[in-house]
Design a protein around this nucleic acid. Structure first.
Length: 825
RNA sequence: ACGAGCGUGGCGGAACUGGUAGACGCGCUGGAUUUAGGUUCCAGUGGGCUUGCCCGUGGGGGUUCGAUUCCCCCCGCUCGUACCA
């Protein structure tokens, strides 16, 4: 054994030892169960710094909890379905599974090199039929309960990935993965009624107080609940049409409605045009809007444009004919795709009305204005509150009261009524790709949609498949889709769509609990023991996608009787990005640092320590090569001092301690206390590590390794407790030194050492002395000094005296253990 | 535009429920060891000057004996959503 710190040798040796002893296996440690989860990686080929950070945070917490006596479940697996595998298959003319499994092998090795404490016995890959058969079963339950449905609808089409995307997966008008501008297409596809859970998904956020506020706010906005009214407008002079329904948050302004506007994609748009004989013009307009949406993606400051259909609606409360327009600013995705326009009280409607010379009827009088609003002189819509006028039957009402009154009136007339609208849309889960989980239904000419019977699950992906790059490989497969209908036995066609890959990650945390179960997705006992997840760690980018879907799945499974728990993640930590030179690491910017190189050069302990030290988990972390060097230097120092301590005689603490002994023991136990506190309160590993560093500076000053100026037992204690405190962050070096200092059990299986409160307490403290709030000196007093003693000491300070000279003390403020402030005139 | 968050030395970041601003690390300066580089160790390191004082936590105001911390206004940056009816 060499005297130099050799991380490679130490780390590989300890990793082998830990594995041989199975120290990470959950369920075998006794103690209170604690489910600690980190977002599982997509097997892209190599781990990146984001993974290193995520998993270093989780592992530090895991090891700390283990030392606190918890039975920790720290699983890992692979989010293994997805487009990159299919793209690689197209490129290399191979199978996506080959690519995926090879990547998994490589990444597993990389994770193991980091010395992470995963229970590898529970490893899972979502592309394995043993995994996905259960999500097929869950889907069939959704189908049975009416939560899954098939419909023709306008969908987001990613022209590069050749598939449909959910709303959440469209970022700035582009596909979240491909980055290509998304097109709108009308397609028959599968959707999930996540909107049935909108209210609960929203309300339950209030209870998730161990989640970051930012994530809760994002979900709240995403779900977007608004209270208002649904109002039906009958189309004038037509009997065979359903009324046009609008949603509004301002039913109080209904009497000021002077026209309606439909989205270009509104199902009635062309119908109305046909009836009015304006088809050509309207079609041209609709095409133009469509084209603009496709090309511009999100043109923000777009000119408001519209076209009159030629048809009118009846105002539900007035004898007023309301022209029906089609307008480019009305969204089909929100509300009903149609709006009632009140130009006097809505800025968008106002601009549109001015552009096309439409009427304005003001109906709300601003409270601070005396003269009534006049349409001709209005320069902008008045969107505030006030009293109603111009509103027969409701004049004089306050607008808030009018909202209720008008909604209720509509309800009694059967022309609408109060309603709550959500921005959240149902979750479109159909993907026209191969490398995903097959949707387990059969389309039969006679029976319609037939679920695949339980005993035929899983519906497995065919292995012999060719990838042209265009179109769905499953639909193009010569035989796979042809089956007999499970119900009537006649020839039928399999569903060739696969699930959105967020489907897999919506429940993987449950499968980890019982990953090899062949008769159930997870056993109730396992769920009872571990679920919900106590602490979930991952990136914020999933705030409105994965985290929302997973919450939904949990609620559905609870309703389906699997368990009682309705929220999957008790506590959530979203770690910040790893950046370099102020920018996110990316291949295109050329600022990527490969974790392998860092581990080769400094070892995993250094890489992990730096990740945890450089910033608190939730903040961005700037990758700084000099900082890594600093962490390495610190570990080398720990190594040197640790070896020196191992040379010391192992004697008990002496009866009487010198001043230096007491000071070093104070440093030791202060450090230990601080590390526990920082981890427990906020997972602030950075300050915990800083405390260890500070303490090591004190140990170094004790002359360890040279002229020792403290009792050997005190020095040994100072090192031993440091090694234990370091175990969550740099586990390899900690165990190595621990054993050299006489330990015989890996630290993860040892108890966190107790703080000697008496030793941690100082016998003298420094008190700041202020005169008129300004610092004029500091004095040393015994910890147990009374108020009078402290005041006397403060007044004795020469500089303080100078500042008090010629003044009368009006007030003496004493903050015990902190400071004294003299208010003097 | 709305919602959330942030703003502290040259840099990353500390500061408990209002109580010595800048812990710890990086960088930098000087010194010791070394043939040299590296390593390691010691000392210093917010700014200013008159060396015990002034200024200093994005800017301005307020509350307080005392404000990085609480309140109001403004500026800047980041993230999210974005014509949400």
């Amino acid at each position: 054994m060499s005297a130099d710190y050799d991380p490679q040798e130490i780390e590989s040796r300890w990793q082998a030892t830990w594995e041989a002893q199975g120290v990470y296996r959950a369920n075998e440690q006794g103690g209170e169960p604690y489910y600690l989860l980190e977002m599982f990686p997509y097997p892209s080929g190599r781990i990146h710094m984001g993974h290193v950070r995520n998993y270093s945070i989780g592992d530090a917490h895991c090891r700390y909890l283990r030392m606190q006596g918890y039975d920790v479940l720290p699983p890992i697996g692979w989010d293994a379905f997805g487009m990159p595998a299919e793209n690689a298959a197209i490129k290399n003319n191979s199978h996506p599974g080959t690519w995926t499994y090879a990547n998994i092998d490589e990444m597993r090795e990389q994770l193991q090199r980091m010395g992470l404490s995963y229970d590898w016995d529970r490893e899972l890959a979502t592309c394995h039929p043993g995994y996905y058969r259960w999500e097929q079963k869950i889907f069939l339950e959704m189908l049975e309960r009416g939560v899954a449905y098939r419909s023709k609808q306008w969908v987001n089409w990613d022209p590069v990935d050749q598939t449909v995307l959910a709303n959440e997966q469209v970022v700035d008008g582009c596909g979240w993965r491909s980055g290509a501008p998304v097109e709108k297409r009308e397609l028959e596809s599968w959707s999930i009624r996540i909107t049935d859970y909108a209210e609960e998904l929203l309300e339950a956020l209030d209870q998730l107080d161990a989640w970051p506020d930012a994530v809760r706010a994002m979900q709240r906005n995403w779900i977007g609940r608004s209270v208002g009214a649904r109002i039906d407008f009958k189309v004038d002079g037509v009997d065979d049409l359903e009324p046009v329904t609008v949603f509004t948050t301002r039913p109080d302004t209904l009497l000021g409605c002077t026209y309606m506007a439909l989205a270009a994609e509104h199902p009635l748009a062309l119908d109305l045009a046909q009836r009015a004989g304006t088809t050509a013009a309207v079609e041209a307009f609709v095409d133009q809007v469509q084209a603009e949406k496709n090309s511009a993606g999100h043109g923000e400051v777009k000119e408001k444009k519209g076209i009159f259909t030629g048809m009118y609606a009846q105002h539900p409360l007035l004898d007023r004919k309301i022209p029906i327009w089609i307008a480019n600013f009305v969204l089909m995705d929100y509300g009903t795709g149609a709006v009632m326009s009140v130009p006097a009280h809505d800025q968008r409607d106002f601009e549109f009305a001015r552009a096309y010379g439409l009427d304005l009827v003001p109906v709300i009088q601003p409270p601070d204005v005396d003269e009534p609003l006049v349409p001709e002189t209005m320069e902008a819509a008045y969107e505030g509150g006030g009293q109603l006028f111009n509103s027969p039957g409701f004049d004089g009402l306050d607008y808030e009261a009018a909202k209720t009154a008008i909604s209720e009136r509509l309800q009694t007339m059967d022309r609408g009524g109060p309603t709550i609208n959500f921005r959240l849309r149902d979750w479109g889960v159909s993907r026209q790709r191969y490398w995903g989980c097959p949707i387990p239904v059969v389309h039969c000419g006679t029976c319609g949609i037939v679920p695949v019977p339980d005993d035929e699950l899983p519906v497995e992906l065919p292995q012999d498949v060719s990838f042209s790059g265009a179109g769905s490989p499953l639909a193009d497969h010569p035989t796979w889709k042809h089956v007999d209908c499970p119900q009537c036995g006649t020839p039928a066609i399999r569903e060739t769509d696969t699930f959105d890959t967020f489907w897999e990650s919506s429940w993987y945390f449950l499968r980890y609990l019982d990953p090899r179960n062949e008769t159930l997705p997870f056993a109730p006992e396992a769920v009872a023991k571990w679920f919900p997840v106590n602490h979930y760690i991952g990136g914020v980018e999933h705030a409105c996608m994965h985290l929302l879907y997973a919450r939904f799945f949990t609620k559905f499974l609870a309703d389906a009787g699997y368990f009682e728990t309705r929220e999957p993640f008790e506590r959530l930590t979203c770690q910040g990005m790893v950046i370099k030179d102020g920018a996110k690491m990316s291949k295109s910017k050329g600022n990527v640092v490969d974790p392998n190189e860092i581990i080769d050069r400094y070892g995993a302990d250094t890489a992990r320590l730096f990740m945890l030290f450089a910033a608190p988990p939730e903040k961005e972390l700037e990758w700084n090569p000099n900082g890594v060097e600093g962490s390495y230097r610190f570990l080398k120092r720990v190594w040197r001092l640790g070896l020196a301590a191992a040379e010391l005689p192992n004697t008990p603490l002496p009866e009487t301690l010198s001043k230096a002994d007491r000071e070093l023991r104070r440093s030791t136990h202060w450090m230990l206390k601080k590390v526990s506190k920082d981890i427990e309160q906020h997972l602030h590993f950075n300050t915990a590590i800083a405390a260890i560093m500070e303490h090591m500076n004190a140990v170094n000053a004790s002359g360890l390794g040279g002229e020792l100026n403290v009792h050997p037992a005190v020095a040994r204690e100072a090192i031993i407790l440091s090694v234990q405190a370091l175990a969550p962050f740099a586990p390899h070096i900690a165990d190595e030194l621990w054993f050299r200092l006489g330990g015989d059990t890996p630290l993860i299986n040892c108890d966190w050492p107790p703080v000697d409160e008496e030793a941690a307490a100082a016998d003298e403290i420094t008190i700041a002395v202020q005169v008129m709030g300004k610092l004029r000196g500091t004095v040393q007093v015994p910890v147990d000094a009374g108020k009078d003693e402290i005041l006397a000491a403060a007044k004795a300070d020469a500089n303080v005296q100078r500042h008090l000279e010629g003044k009368t003390i009006i007030k003496e403020i004493v903050v015990p253990g902190r400071l004294v402030n003299f208010v003097a005139r």
